[in-house]
Amino acid sequence: MYKEIIFYSASFLILLFGILTIFFRNIFYSLISAICVFFLAGILFWLSGSEYNAVIQFAVYGFAVPVILGLGIMFTRKGKEEEEEKTASASNLKNILLFICGLFILAVVYLVLISLTIFPYGFNLEANLQNGINTYNNFRIFSKGLFIKYVFAFEIISIILTITAAGLTVLKKRRNV
């Protein structure tokens, strides 16, 4: 039953925040709703049964991508000083938003710890332990996929990413010179 509730609420929110991203005039607000969308997508991954993917989604899309985008926005803002005009309701709004973000982070940490079975799963531990721990199932899938079936793709992508990173730094250095 929990699964349905979480699914429907997550799906509704994901669509809502997606539409909001387009319609916000302020770029920062749209960035924040984008972060929400990515988090909810991670939760959908968790619901589909792959916690590993959810964690990666949170890490990459929930953290790294906003950092990049935020840096990009900040460096290219042309003196938009509206953020300084903040009313009390705006600061309240800011507080509420921060609280929700904190809840999200806590939820993430809780889910990560649970998936790593450091914290007991809680609900049916004895039954699961007797049936054989299959919380490592996801890891088994990933290890089989990455290192046995698709090791070639994995290696090539890692090479490509390395080259990209190296290339970007080189170009950056050349531009500066």
Partner: peptide, 10 residues
């Protein structure tokens, strides 16, 4: 086999 999940990673 959870091949789909591996795709997501890539």
């Amino acid at each position: 086999e959870g091949d789909g999940f591996v795709m997501i990673l890539f």
